[in-house]
């Protein structure tokens, strides 16, 4: 809706909520890249920072939820306004989960730094994290610009993330079969890869919310699922 509300304070409320989402999104994007960077360079200081910064992400989710509840109570939003507020709440919840995954990567970074292993999956994991971060950036831009096309593009790109995860899953499996010493670091690295893959799913959920805001319906076309590691033939 390009038009302004007759009650201009309503527009300001909605804009403020959108701004909070962008702020939260910025923090989460940073958390993803810092977590991946800390992992690659075994930088425990940076990992610690990621863990600490998660508090701010959680706090923003609470602020956004409280603001959404207030606007619903005071303004009785309808139609696209209602969809926007519902989407903001869901997006905040998805961002919070992504933040948790980044925090978990940071935690495992400490363990990996102490195991002193020689496996070098850092660059691959960072590429995967980079792709998820770009998808998140596009999903949030699509939300601000009400761009359903861009959101659908993000949804389709999750397939690439899933495929990266599949490849890493096989790689870790091979390492573990080669040498039992690899099991501990590989288990952690696998959880990290899985965390990034799950981040991609949450970004997809955010993009689906954008489609809902714009079109009034969630995308109906069945998405191709790229994570095949839970299928029997992979085991």
């Amino acid at each position: 809706m390009e038009e302004q509300h007759i009650a201009s304070a309503f527009d300001r409320d909605l804009e403020a909520m959108q701004a909070q989402i962008m702020k939260m999104g910025g923090l989460v994007e940073a958390a993803i890249m810092e977590a991946a960077g800390a992992l690659e360079s075994r930088d425990e200081e940076l990992a610690k920072k990621v863990q600490e910064n998660d508090v701010a992400i959680d706090g923003l989710e609470e602020i956004i939820d409280a603001e959404a509840a207030r606007v619903i109570a005071l303004r009785s939003p309808t139609a696209s306004d209602l969809r926007l507020i519902l989407s903001v709440m869901k997006i905040a919840s998805n961002l919070e989960r992504i933040g948790d995954y980044a925090k978990n990567i940071a935690k495992r970074t400490h363990v990996l730094a102490q195991t002193g292993h020689v496996l070098d999956s850092g660059p691959a994991l960072r590429r995967m994290a980079r792709e998820v971060e770009l998808m998140l950036k596009d999903a949030l831009d699509a939300h601000v610009q009400r761009d359903a096309e861009l959101a659908r593009d993000v949804i389709n790109r999750d397939l690439g993330v899933d495929q990266m995860y599949n490849a890493m899953f096989r790689e870790f499996l091979t390492y573990m079969m080669e040498n039992a010493q690899n099991i501990t670091p590989c288990m952690h690295l696998h959880f990290i890869a899985k965390n990034i893959e799950r981040m991609g799913d949450h970004v997809t959920a955010i993009a689906e919310q954008v489609v809902y805001v714009v079109a009034g319906e969630k995308p109906t076309d069945e998405r191709v699922k790229g994570d095949t590691t839970s299928s029997p033939q992979e085991a």
Partner: peptide
Amino acid sequence: TNPEDPRTESYITG
């Protein structure tokens, strides 16, 4: 929640 006509949307959303 999801009116079809933009005039309806404008009216109900104030």
